[in-house]
């Protein structure tokens, strides 16, 4: 792992490149740079957290992908222009496999995009794998299905991004719950960060937070207080995060043994052949 100085330098350079790309209107480059930038920021944040934790002061809930705290110039909010980009941004914001409905909820609340229909998201999966087959390097990222930890088959309703670590794309029995809790935390963080100006923005996020928080225990209904909600989600996440990671990590070796395509898109299942015709 890079040192903190190396990380900071790289982050600075990426930010400059991003500004330049923005200035010349190069959306593709900007997208690519942002990806790298966020990965670097995540690494840097982990280093910070470890440092803070070992100094035994509680670190604030910090959802992956959120903007780094600090005096650096923050980039203006980028709005997704295509469906696949919107999916990628949602997944990256939350940092866990999400189902299409969750992606739609987040995208609508945070970016005000309206996904035309669920079809757009679903057809993505098929298109992405086809595109990969034609030319694996043709795109900066692919939307992939999450991979079941036991069968290594593609999961039905959970999506990930190809640029993620293998470990983060695996689905353990805990992962759906973990992903939900991370979605709650991401929403809470977004509410906190959202400027009060701009009438619609914050309200949408608060409504989403209230809706997502409804099934959490010991909370009054219709509550949209990010601090309170965040605490409840955080405490539950703490109880299951390790087990979730352990199961996922245990499948890494088997996953790595698969072909490149199967590593990204899952191992197809053998169809049982029986001679008996069904009734």
């Amino acid at each position: 792992m890079e040192s903190i100085e190396g990380l900071s330098a790289r982050i600075n350079q990426l930010q400059n490149e991003a500004n330049e790309a923005l200035a010349r209107g190069d959306v593709d480059a900007l997208t690519r740079i942002r990806e790298h930038l966020q990965a670097a920021e995540r690494q840097r944040n982990r280093v910070w957290e470890e440092a803070l934790a070992s100094a035994s002061s509680p670190s604030p809930p910090h959802s992956p992908g959120s903007r780094a705290e600090g005096p650096e110039e923050s980039l203006p909010v980028v709005t997704p222009t295509t469906a696949r980009d919107a999916v990628r941004m949602a997944l990256t914001d939350v940092g866990a496999p999400l189902d299409p409905k969750q992606i739609q909820l987040w995208g609508t609340a945070k970016y005000r995009t309206s996904f035309a229909t669920s079809r757009a998201v679903y057809s993505l999966r098929r298109d992405e794998q086809r595109a990969w087959r034609q030319n694996p390097d043709g795109r900066f990222f692919y939307i992939c299905p999450a991979i079941s930890h036991d069968t290594l088959a593609p999961a039905r309703a959970a999506l990930t991004v190809s640029t993620w670590d293998d470990e983060d794309r695996i689905l353990s029995p805990y992962t759906p719950r973990v992903a939900y809790l991370k979605l709650v935390l991401a929403t809470a963080a977004a509410v906190k960060e959202c400027p009060a100006a701009g009438p619609g923005d914050r309200r949408q996020l608060e409504v989403l937070l209230a809706k997502l928080a409804r099934p959490l225990p010991n909370l009054p209904p219709r509550l949209a207080d990010p601090a309170v909600v965040g605490e409840v989600a955080e405490s539950e996440l703490a109880l299951i995060a390790t087990a979730d990671e352990d199961i996922r990590r245990a499948s890494l070796e088997r996953l790595a043994a698969l072909s490149d395509e199967q590593r990204l898109f899952g191992q197809p299942l053998k169809v049982h052949s029986t001679s008996r015709r069904h009734a």
């Binding site: 069968t151 088959a153 039905r156 353990s172 029995p173 805990y174 759906p176 719950r177 539950e236 109880l239 299951i240 087990a243 299942l269 053998k270 169809v271 049982h272 069904h278």
Partner: peptide, 16 residues
């Protein structure tokens, strides 16, 4: 609280 391990049996692996 930790007992939230989830499995979807809505279709078999063979999807027949």
């Amino acid at each position: 609280i930790p007992a939230t391990r989830h499995k979807d049996l809505s279709s078999s692996r063979a999807r027949t």
